[in-house]
Design a protein around this nucleic acid. Structure first.
Lengths: 200, 200
DNA sequence: TTACAAAAAATAACACTGTTAACTTACAGG
DNA sequence: CCTGTAAGTTAACAGTGTTATTTTTTGTAA
């Protein structure tokens, strides 16, 4: 008598179809073009059904923000080595961050500012915490080869993240969508500067 | 027979009233809440009149982006000294940038990404050029005490701007709207790191 | 002063948006 | 088979940017 289970499974399926439909719209037309009616058309349900699964359009987009932070964390972590505690790890992390941003531009733009009112975000996205923690402990390792994050490591993490996000943003705003030679140089320059200031 | 002049003057007045109305809406309700009808209500004209002065709502917002870059440039330049060519000038510039961003949050958010599709921007805002030029020549001065900008200075400018914008963005997204003690530390840390990498 | 052309402004519409109240249909349990 | 609940629908509300059409105003020449 798994009728309830089946219903839950069906509900989950609809939820997923909403997310995949929304995602395909964002990818093909950009997050500005995402609309509830377009999603409803794509999943072949009426509009109010979507509101049985998500509180609002923003809640749907927040789902991708969360996914984005998880993926970003995993993408960076995948390229780091557990043993190596040298500052080259920071270079790897920085370049991985950069690479993720331009390989997933729609996601990255959704993650940062565009489309969502700024201050609500952090509170609604605990994934940011998880992402932050990873980078903090990476820096901690580089600083003093320990695993106990202190205030200084947090401060340095904040600086590091800011530099990376700034590089990506300015690149996306100012030049074309795909990074060129010069910007790669700028990236290396900035990371190098950060490391230099860190280890001395 | 200054009837034509009077008409031009009146047209200019309406244009200005549109901008001031739009600006007051942005300041009180945020740029998300700006709408053509609200502007029309405020200036006591019908909606299509606005389209005789601006091509679109985005064109109106772009006007504030331009103003923003002009003001940012002037704000920084006002705090620099012509004679001093030490790297402390960079610290001053960096802190002035930071201060401007949080003293003019609506403007800053309008200038960077939020609300406008990214890639069109740079082409439509020549003021970015002017702002960039100022910072490039500042860095050139610090590097080799000359006034001839070279590729290296441009690269360093890009890095510097990225760091600053990153700091502001992460602060606005992650923490509260007003910067706290820790973030001031991060700011100094980042600027210090940049200068250190620059002069050595 | 009146007639007329041209410029200015207003109305009203189009095609959308997010969101929700009210109604209908489908379906499982008694 | 009937009934109550839950799922899904239609239709509406209150907006949005933008524009075609119509009206009003205004300056000029007869």
């Amino acid at each position: 008598m798994g009728v309830l289970e089946r219903k839950l499974r069906q509900k989950e399926e609809v939820r997923n179809s909403i997310l995949t439909a929304a995602w395909s719209i964002i990818q093909t037309e950009g997050w500005q073009a995402l609309s509830i009616r377009k999603i409803a058309d794509a999943i072949e349900y009426s509009v109010p059904v979507i509101y049985n699964h998500f509180e609002s359009k923003e809640a749907i987009m927040l789902e991708f923000v969360k996914e984005g932070f998880r993926q970003l964390r995993d993408h960076i972590q995948a390229q780091l080595s557990e043993e190596d505690r040298s500052c080259q790890q920071l270079e790897i992390a920085g370049k991985a961050y950069w690479q993720f941003a331009f390989a997933n531009q729609a996601t990255y733009q959704l993650m940062f500012g565009m489309g969502l009112p700024p201050c609500e975000r952090a509170r609604q996205v605990p994934e940011i915490q998880s992402f932050s923690t990873m980078l903090v402990s990476l820096i901690q390792k580089v600083i003093d080869h320990s695993n106990q994050p202190d205030t200084n490591a947090f401060l340095k993490f904040h600086t590091f993240w800011s530099i990376l996000h700034g590089l990506v943003s300015i690149q996306m705003i100012n030049r074309s969508a795909t990074p060129d030679e010069l910007s790669e140089l700028v990236l290396e320059d900035a990371i190098y500067g950060f490391i230099k200031a860190l280890v001395v």
